[in-house]
Every structure is written in structure tokens, then in C-alpha cells.
Amino acid sequence: MRLLLVRHGQTRSNVEHLLDTAVPGADLSELGRDQAAALVPALGGLGIGAVTASTLVRTQQTAAPLAAHLGLPVAVADGLREIEAGDLEMRGDEESVRRYLDVVAAWLHGDLSVAEPGAEDGHAFFARYDAAVADALAAARAADVETLVLVSHGAAIRTWAGSRVRNVSADFVIATGLENTGVVELVGSPEEGWTCERWAGAVVAPEQAAATGAGAAAEPGSVF
């Protein structure tokens, strides 16, 4: 099975470095819509047979051009939404962003009990994201689909991949960004395990990636 995890296109909240994690969230900016349209030539020839997005509007808007090109519906899964900011929602100051990213780092290093006030902890995040991936894979298998797209969010994709993919380490995820409409390409299955073949277009080695991995380094406010 081939799983393409696609980050949504740019929003105004991204530009303003706001912790915009709640449903429905911001619409795509003009640039974000252009980025979504560019997924058609980038991914349209890969044999994709299913497209699923989160419940935030920016992921559905990002998925729409590709799905329309492929003649596919966009399924919606709540489990693919962004890691919650809780009481930090829509804040963009440096301290708030640092606290949010510290939670992500703690989860990546195995402490799933950490959470911001008003937000889920790591146990809840992985439970809902794992379930959403499993449901999408089950539907794909039932339809004899080998390649599927999940349109999700920067922190969510990076955190899930850093904990569920055998050759992507926590240090790699913390040091490596995922720009708007960046793609993390995985092969495998939940039963056999996942291997990352490409991160934002750069090949990832079969052995565990080092901290200085592919793609641009993460910037505060760039991951939501």
C-alpha cells in the first residue's frame, strides 16, 4: 500500500503564524489555492484511487482540485485534523508557539501524557489519527485501491510519521519541516510497518533518517 500524506495549502493563519487548529479553521489563501491546483500535475499520474481530508476546510479545499481531476469524492475524517492548541488557539506569540511545539516534541520522544490546557494529550491524538488511517486503508482495500491520499496538517503529519514510520526518527521530524502541500510518501501497512520513501520530494534512506534530513527546517508558526 502507498500512502501519500499531504499538508494543506497556505492560509492567512499560516502567514500570520497563528495556532489555528480548531474546526472549521481558515480558508486557503490565493497562494494556497494555487498550491492546491499544482497538486494535480504533481500527483495526478500516480494511480491514486482514494482521497480523504480532515474536517478543517483548508484540507478539503486542498484536496478538491486533485479529487476532481481524478473523478473521486473527497472523504472526510475527523481523526486527521490538526493537533489541538487548546487554550493557545489563535495565538501567535513566540511563547505560545514554543509551548505548542514543546508538546509535539514530548510526544515524539514518548511522553504522551503532556498536553496544553484545553487540548488533547498524545494518547488521544494517536488514537484518533491511527483510527482515521486505519479506516481509510480499510476502505481502500475494499475498493482494491493501492495508492491513497490523506490531506492533513503539518504538526499532525510530522508527529504521526515520527512515531509510526520505521525510518523517520523523532530528531528528524523536529529538525525537518513540511511546507504547504508538501508530501510524505509512505509504503507498507499498519501490520507490516511503514517506510518513508520521500519527504517533501527528497528521498529518505531505508535506515533511520538523521536529524539533518530532507526538506526545509521547521519554522515557528509554519506547521499548523
Rank of each mutant, 00 (worst) to 15 (best):
V6I: 04
R7S: 06
H8P: 07
Q10G: 07
S13F: 04
V15C: 06
S29M: 08
E30G: 12
E30F: 15
E30H: 14
Q35K: 07
A38L: 05
P41I: 03
P41K: 12
L46Q: 09
G47W: 06
I48D: 03
A50I: 00
A50D: 12
A50N: 04
V51H: 01
A53W: 03
S54F: 07
S54Y: 02
V57C: 07
T59G: 00
Q60K: 06
A63N: 04
A67P: 00
A67Q: 04
H69Y: 12
P73D: 09
V76T: 08
V76M: 00
A77E: 08
L80D: 00
L80W: 01
L80T: 03
R81L: 09
E82T: 09
I83E: 06
L88C: 06
M90N: 14
R99C: 12
Y100N: 07
L101G: 15
D102P: 12
A105G: 08
H109E: 13
G110C: 12
D111P: 10
L112Y: 11
V114R: 15
A115I: 12
A119T: 11
E120F: 13
G122H: 06
H123S: 10
A124K: 15
F126V: 11
R128E: 09
R128C: 15
Y129V: 11
D130G: 09
A131L: 13
A131H: 11
A132G: 13
V133D: 03
D135M: 10
L137T: 15
A142N: 14
A142D: 13
A142T: 15
A143S: 12
T147D: 10
T147E: 13
L148E: 04
L148Y: 01
L148S: 03
V151F: 04
V151M: 00
V151G: 02
H153L: 11
I157L: 11
R158F: 08
T159A: 14
G162S: 09
G162D: 02
G162R: 00
N167T: 00
N167L: 05
V168H: 03
F172V: 04
F172G: 07
I174R: 12
I174C: 12
T176R: 08
G182L: 11
V184D: 02
V184H: 05
V184Q: 01
E185M: 03
L186E: 02
G193T: 07
T195G: 07
T195R: 08
T195F: 01
T195W: 04
C196Q: 05
A200S: 12
A202M: 12
A202C: 11
E207D: 14
Q208T: 11
Q208A: 15
A210M: 10
A214K: 02
G215L: 08
A217H: 14
E219Q: 15
V223E: 05
V223R: 05
F224C: 11
